Amino acid sequence: MANVTLGGTPVETIGNLPEVGSKAPNFKLTATDLSDKANSEFADARLVLNIFPSVDTGTCAQSIRTFNEKASQLENTKVLCISKDLPFAMARFCGAEGIENVESLSDYKTGRFGDEYGVTFKTGAFETLLSRCIVVIDTDGTVLHTEQVSEIADEPNYEAALDALK
């Protein structure tokens, strides 16, 4: 399990991120149109998974904005913004912000994504939500880079994630 902090208070996740070099776990998430999206639908693209607790927090919103800006410059790469927010909240935020270069997906139905990627909080005020993480996956499903952000209020290292794609 990962030990991270929320406002300096220690909290735990249920596991650890997939190891770099391992195959990324399969997933099925819900898109903003309520359709199911599986990782197999992105098989020909490299993936940046921007995982976070909720679009309704400042840091999470900023991560979406930042990746939206950078995603348009990435060749054969999709940025998936993943939380347990309802798809309606994600659609509302992205629509209001003019976010068009990332895809928002939700783990609200089953929570399996958070469990299989080891990112669900098991303690603390955000218990059952997803921790702030980045997972970069190559076209063959190999994990190229991971980051478990140690303080939930901090932004991820965008450049390290994007450098993994070079």
Rank of each mutant, 00 (worst) to 15 (best):
D44T: 05
L80F: 09
I64R: 14
E127N: 12
A61H: 08
L6Q: 14
F52D: 00
E103Q: 15
A160T: 10
K28F: 08
K122D: 13
P156W: 02
L29V: 00
V11C: 12
D56K: 14
G8I: 14
V55N: 07
C133H: 06
A24M: 11
S63P: 00
N68E: 03
D154G: 03
V79R: 01
Y158I: 00
F113P: 12
R65I: 03
V20M: 01
S63K: 00
D115A: 15
V136Y: 11
Q62V: 08
R132F: 04
D44G: 03
K70C: 04
Q148E: 03
P156D: 04
N50M: 01
S106E: 10
G21P: 00
T110E: 01
N26K: 05
V79E: 00
M1Q: 15
A43T: 10
V4H: 10
S150T: 11
C133I: 04
L49G: 02
T123K: 01
N157I: 01
K70T: 06
Q73A: 08
T32D: 06
K28Y: 13
F52V: 02
V119R: 10
L130A: 08
E159D: 10
R65L: 03
D115R: 09
E41Q: 11
D36M: 03
A164K: 04
L86P: 12
G7Y: 08
T128I: 09
A91E: 13
K28R: 11
T110S: 01
N50W: 00
Q62R: 15
L17F: 00
G98S: 09
K37C: 03
A45Y: 03
K23I: 13
